[in-house]
């Protein structure tokens, strides 16, 4: 049906889009959780919760669909990454469960200890998830040791290497910044003032960390350097990312909050594109023996299966985009608390 199209490439890009969508959308939910402890006053905290309240679980679906699509299109990558990062991944699941139920439970009871506990759950879950996502990305960029059957041969502690932790912390600041910008769009008055104060250190921290991360990557990750040398057009993406980052404080200062949010979205989109383009054609790079790396051709499902998936995506994705956009439209504007709010 799709003879003339390289479906492996299509799915490499689609999986990238799904995970970028997850980072961009759930990124502001996780960022909201991260800055939550720094917001004073129960009512302001509730504004935060309700800014993400109607949308967070739809955003999390992007991760679930990304995982499902990875399983379907690149089953060998799915098996290698999730079994290899076993404990790290179990912690991520724990973090996401904690985040989900904390949002649901927190405002159900008026007691101080109850709200404090679930509030702590919300922020702990969000912070843990942000860092772990960054650490996982760091390890994928850096490459992991694999055996001939494609199994990870390292240990859990080796995943916590300085390079990956650096990306973990960078991701934490990135999501926190992204979350703050989203919250500034969704709130007003005192809540907004408080968030604006928190945005500054998050933005500053992120800019320092991302510059550091870029330098470290170029110095210590040779295959990333080669990837850029072979595809110099990646530098265009790098400039776009830099421009997007630079625009965030400009728009913020001028009070164009929506534009600042779009710049933040564009920053994340560019970062994910740079990641994908430098990795190409690898999905999992084996740093002990590059021959054993999983690529979009040796780790994929059969063409027949990719065709089925492509049809499913062609039917499903336009529908999803249409009604998701409509639902975001319904919840546009500033958050108002009602008796049904979290």
């Amino acid at each position: 049906m799709f003879e003339s199209i390289d479906l492996n490439l299509v799915w490499f890009i689609l999986i990238g889009i799904l995970f970028s969508g997850y980072a961009i959308l759930d990124g502001f939910d996780l960022g909201t959780g991260t800055v939550y402890p720094f917001i004073k006053g129960d009512i302001n905290k509730r504004y935060l919760l309700n800014a993400v309240g109607p949308v967070w679980d739809g955003n999390e679906v992007w991760l679930i669909v990304g995982g499902g699509a990875l399983f379907a299109a690149f089953p060998f990558v799915y098996a290698t990454v999730f079994s290899g990062f076993y404990l790290a991944f179990m912690l991520l699941l724990l973090a996401l469960i904690l985040r989900a139920v904390s949002i649901e439970f927190r405002s159900q009871q008026p007691w101080n200890w109850w709200r404090k506990t679930w509030g702590a759950g919300f922020s702990t879950g969000s912070i843990m998830a942000s860092i772990l996502i960054g650490v996982a990305m760091g390890n994928i960029t850096r490459g992991i040791p694999l055996d001939t059957d494609g199994n990870y041969t390292g240990t859990f502690l080796e995943l916590l290497n300085p390079y990956s932790i650096l990306l973990g912390v960078t991701t934490l600041f990135l999501f926190a910044m992204h979350g703050c910008i989203y919250l500034i769009m969704k709130t007003e008055g005192e809540t907004q003032e408080q968030v604006k104060k928190i945005l500054r250190p998050c933005m500053f921290g992120f800019i320092v960390l991302i510059i550091l991360h870029t330098i470290v990557t170029l110095l210590y990750i040779p295959h990333a350097r080669e990837g850029i040398a072979q595809n110099p057009w990646i530098l265009i993406l790098v400039f776009m990312a830099a421009a997007s980052i630079a625009m965030i404080p400009v728009f913020m200062y001028k009070g164009y909050h929506g534009w600042a949010f779009l710049s933040s979205v564009s920053t994340m989109g560019c970062m994910m594109s740079i990641f994908g383009a430098t990795m190409f054609p690898h999905l999992v790079y084996c740093n002990t023996n590059p021959e054993l790396s999983l690529t979009l051709y040796n780790a994929s499902a059969t063409t027949k299966s990719l065709e089925v998936m492509t049809v499913i995506a062609l039917i499903g994705v336009p529908l999803v985009l249409a009604y998701s956009a409509a639902i975001y439209w319904v919840f546009r504007g500033k958050v108002v608390l009602t008796e049904r709010s979290y």
Partner: peptide, 8 residues
């Protein structure tokens, strides 16, 4: 994998 992705 495909039914799981379709479910999503």
């Amino acid at each position: 994998g495909s039914p799981l992705a379709a479910e999503g």
